[in-house]
Design a protein around this nucleic acid. Structure first.
Length: 203
DNA sequence: GAATAGATTGTCT
DNA sequence: GACAATCTATTCT
């Protein structure tokens, strides 16, 4: 377990990158959330890039701009959080400049800090991969929800930090079969052989 | 391990 | 009124 005093927020410059490069760069970084209950953090091991307006899988497809996805059009380095299927919160990192609606979905974490806190939030044993092996699961483990929509990601309580990373592989994105020609784009990035990757690849 | 069904609610048409 | 960047339990192989 890493020493939590060593955790330092990555600065805003980190997020100023093309969305595919950012999705790859996020693999291995730590996502950290401090609350009054304590700290909870994990290494990012799976991400997906969404690149509107041309990408039909993105909420910003065809330039769609609504109350829900407004933060995608804002500056990089902020959180875009939305409710999925009525029960799960999905946590994204906004990329690209203002008015360019790109974002990276965080799909899985390998827990590093606050395992028992995460286990209690998830109501399961801390050793199970189901603790954080999906977008909704990691949001529940880190206590991230709509209150964080639009939040800056270099603050004292919610931030990214450096971490180790292994080999990165890529594949098509998960559950976007409505997206036409964009279905097969290899815009999902994951750490090879990591047990917390949500949908297991054939490697 | 894989496949399937049902839950559940904010958002948009 | 339909849908969604999902999760869980259940029922199989």
């Amino acid at each position: 377990m890493t020493d939590e005093r060593a955790l330092r927020p990555l600065g805003p410059d980190f997020f100023d990158a093309p969305v595919l490069a950012l999705a790859r760069a996020l693999i291995g970084k730590l996502l950290v959330h401090r609350t009054p209950e304590g700290i909870a953090a994990g290494r990012i091991v799976e991400t997906e890039a969404y690149r509107g307006p041309e990408d039909l899988a993105a909420h910003s497809a065809r330039g769609r701009r609504t109350r829900r996805n407004e933060v995608m059009y804002g500056p990089p380095g902020h959180a875009y959080v939305f409710l999925l299927y009525g029960t799960s919160w999905a946590f994204n990192v906004v990329a690209a400049a203002r008015e360019v609606p790109h974002a990276v979905l965080i799909r899985a974490l390998e827990p590093t800090h606050g395992l028992s806190l995460m286990a209690s939030r998830r109501r399961m044993e801390a050793t199970r991969r189901e603790l954080t092996n999906g977008p909704g699961k990691l949001s529940q483990a880190l206590a991230l929800d709509r209150a964080h929509d639009g939040a800056r990601l270099s603050g004292p309580d919610l931030f990214l930090a450096d971490g180790q990373r292994g080999a990165v592989a890529r594949s098509p994105r998960i559950n976007i079969d409505y997206a036409g020609a964009w279905v097969d784009k290899p815009w999902r990035f994951y750490e090879r052989h990591n047990r917390y990757v949500s949908v297991r690849p054939r490697d």
